[in-house]
Amino acid sequence: MSTERIHIIADSTSDIPPELLPNLPITVVPTFVNFAGNSFPDDNVQLDRQGFYQQLPALRPFPTTAAASPGMIEDAIKAVADRCDHIIFLAQSTKLGSCYTQMRLAASSLPPDRYTLVDSQQIAMGFGWQAIIGAETALETGSVEATLDAMARVRKAVRVYCALNTLEYLQRGGRVGWAQAGIGTLLQIKPILLVEDGEVKSHAKVRTFSRALEEIVRVAHEYAPLDRLAIIYTTDAEAANALRDRLQDILPAGGRTIVTRITPSIGVHAGPGALGIVPLSAAWKN
């Protein structure tokens, strides 16, 4: 009953919109958010995004996150191994989380020629676009090589820019690499974070959120013409839609523009009010 040659297993920090999954050969393994003495998978079933973000400002102690266990990933492998020839494991940046390691452990049960392990060097839709375009390429070509090549090109071209409304969550999360966004400065700032080369960097520091959005709009135009664009947010859907409207002149057509809520396992670090873009320039194909 082998209907697909290639299957992708990605972790949930890829933020792939759930409505796309039924049509793509992708399995998403959850990331866990630990709070109130429990550990919740961010699968939008046990942990409702809307509800979680409403609680977030009041949660004490502060939530922490953890990658899926190798056992869970093995379950995901078992569920698809019989109906595909090759599994591509795609993990969040190894500099930002441990999912890659868990995937490597779980995958060791497979013969080496039946899987490929890939560090997405990204998070959120910077990771998501790699999985989506990889899956599309897999369906079109059936070629592992072509799929990996497309994913590598996307990985090289894609960036995440995200304006934070508050530094508090970044600071409290204490993740290495996240903390260089200008904490401890004399004047308060609204940072715009940039994810590239697997790291979270500071793209710019401005004084007001509206100035941050101006900068994001400017940056988005630098990537035009766009093949894909994701608008990502933690709490303010209205602001996300308004940002999409401001980018009307460069929006890629149809389903190639996505407005999506950041998964709680990343959102705990970005905090309420975070808003960003994940542009993929059309030049990635060249």
Partner: peptide, 8 residues
């Protein structure tokens, strides 16, 4: 701040 934005 604008200077930083341009030179950063």
């Amino acid at each position: 701040f604008e200077h930083q934005l341009h030179t950063g």
